[in-house]
Design a binder for these strands. Structure first.
Lengths: 356, 356
DNA sequence: GAATCGCATGTAAGCGCTTACACTTTCTAC
DNA sequence: GTAGAAAGTGTAAGCGCTTACATGCGATTC
């Protein structure tokens, strides 16, 4: 063994080989190889226009030859920004946030930003942790879903000077920049139509409202519509459940076995609605003849479900894109963007019918 | 103005205020405030056991009071690692990769790593770019989908010393560590059963095979089964299309209008299958009485579709979790993990019936 | 032809943290 | 009691990059 080790030292080449395997080329290596200063190499990378064409070509060739790529950490540290934007969403497991997020990312990428995602599993404590984690990782800005969270989180973000945009909700009174829609109004509009169709006994299968203002708003929207139309509050059966198709199915069964079963079942989101739909089928309950089912979100699932789901359309893509644009502008100008309200509106498909 | 500026200098306090608003507290600030060295503060954060309890308490209090949180870039630079793992997937827009990715992230989080996601939109060029981008951002390791990509990408990754794991595929001959399943074998198993049920005229609505080895393998799997069962190659109508429900619908229409329409239509993934299913319904074609439809992936959509989709179950969660575990081990030990083969198997639901 | 300008490039000072090493103090074992 | 180990802490050298500022030099102006 010692002999071998000794031998290795004899061959000068080996040192080079070892250097290659143990460490990547640095800016300095490139500068040395190209016969220029580190500043020039840095400029070639960041502000190519500032460098004479001949020099630039030489440096670019050297970069390619050495396979150099800038060290992220060093760059972050020297430039004091990461060009990274964080997004914290409740879950990645289904399409509710995926489409919006994809649009968000596309827009960010187009402007040279990278997206960092974290999911909370609908847990507030988890969210607080993820906010800290993303900020610690140098997220220059953050996207959050909904307004409702501990004030401490907002204080932290403000103290760290992290531009933060709220999406999936609209509440101008909050004073926080947001790109979203009015959950209550959208659900209210839908509920009005449902009531106008003659439905009197209603149910809402809702996501948990405790830390989810979107769910709460949707609930309030139905209540508002009922009040408008003179329906007493007790005509709404409110069932709160956690997220998932199965949960929707269970809740639907529960709703239908009530002493006064509803003729229209609202669901806080399409995933729950699809679960309800499946349960109806399994129980031989015909939709929409026996009961109407109404979703919220208009994710792909809604169109593919059978019967195609009547739901509230949410402009996911638009929301993601505009949120990214707002954040990019904020990062550039240093001034918070205006709050943007998008429209979410009922989409009539086949799971809602008049009650005769 | 000069007067004002002069005044500011008079008040010592102002300097402090300005420092507060313009920059976050640093390790050094904490050290100074706590009356210890920067090394001690660093230890409190990274190796608390090494610090005397009294000192630690004091430092922790100071950290809390100042609202200090370590600067990511500086940390990365000094420690030469980011604790970040990148994942590059074709798309985030639907559930195909979402569940696996969620499991991947959960496992990473549990071990103190953060996930960086990038999507390629099924474009090879885009993928090459994203690989570079994630590496440049300091991803310590990478998750990729499928084996097929330019050798240059593998060379780049090797040169940069980035542990990389392949998922959603299994090809021990590649010599690359992977956690996945044998797409060809899974599809072959399914196809055998379909043929055994009496189907002779088949179709495959496939994702584009050019840069997607999973799609290609699935195609080959059907061919293998046909050969086993003595069906001539021309009994398979092969339709290649891009990704999406709509695309599946269009391709299905095309398949059924062939001169020799298939009695069983395989789909390269559930999204295409659900599109086919919808198109069948819209065209008054009854599934599975008139035609059988078979998916692949077993995403949530498959269970919710009507009729529930017969498909090939892919162990998404397990795959994500194990991929993360493999990568974490690799990062720790420095030795590549063994390739893991998971089992993907047919799930019989209601869209496949015997051909009489 | 001297003064001026502006472009291309170089010099070098950090950015905020980790960590090897050194040092001091306290314990342990005989 | 003392040598040696162990534990706690400090010192200071970078990590690889960006960028303010300095420098050099050819082009322009009068």
């Amino acid at each position: 063994m010692t002999e071998v080790a000794g031998r290795i030292e004899i061959y000068g080449q080996c040192e080079i080989v070892m250097a290659n395997t143990t460490s990547l080329p640095t800016l300095q290596d490139v500068a040395a190889a190209a016969g220029v200063s580190t500043a020039t190499v840095s400029r070639v990378i960041n502000f190519p226009a500032q460098v004479a064409p001949a020099t630039r070509a030489k440096v670019e060739a050297t970069i390619a030859q050495l396979g150099y790529s800038p060290h992220f950490g060093a760059r972050v540290m020297a430039a004091r920004r990461t060009n990274t934007v964080g997004a914290i969403i409740p879950t990645m497991e289904n399409a509710v946030f995926a489409r919006g997020l994809q649009a968000f990312q596309d827009e960010l990428s187009a402007h040279g930003y990278t997206m960092l995602v974290a999911s909370t599993g609908y847990s507030a404590a988890n969210e607080a942790e993820q906010v800290k984690a993303l900020v610690a990782r140098g997220a220059d800005a953050l996207l959050l879903i909904g307004h409702k969270r501990d004030q401490a989180i907002y204080d932290f973000l403000a103290a760290q000077g992290i531009p933060t945009i709220i999406t999936w909700a609209f509440d101008p009174s909050s004073g926080r920049p947001s790109v979203g829609f009015d959950n209550a109004a959208a659900m209210r509009d839908m509920a009005r139509q449902v009531i106008d169709m003659g439905h009197r006994q209603l149910a809402l299968i809702s996501a948990e409202t405790a830390s989810n203002d979107r769910a709460m708003e949707r609930y309030l929207g139905i209540q508002a519509a009922m009040q408008d139309k003179g329906l007493p509050e007790e005509n709404l059966l409110f069932i709160e459940t956690s997220y998932g198709i199965e949960e929707g199915a269970i809740a639907f069964k529960q709703a239908m076995s009530a002493s006064n079963p509803p003729s229209a079942v609202f669901c806080g989101n399409d995933v729950l609605a699809v679960g309800a739909l499946r349960q109806a089928r399994d129980s031989g309950i015909h939709v929409p003849d026996d009961v109407s089912i109404i979703g919220f979100d208009d994710i792909e699932l809604a169109q593919v479900a059978y019967p195609p789901l009547t739901t509230v359309h949410v402009p996911h893509r638009e929301m993601g894109r505009l949120a990214a644009a707002a954040l990019i502008g904020w990062l550039k100008d240093g001034t918070p963007p205006n709050t943007v309200e998008l429209l979410a509106y009922p989409v009539m498909r086949s799971t809602l019918a008049p009650k005769d």
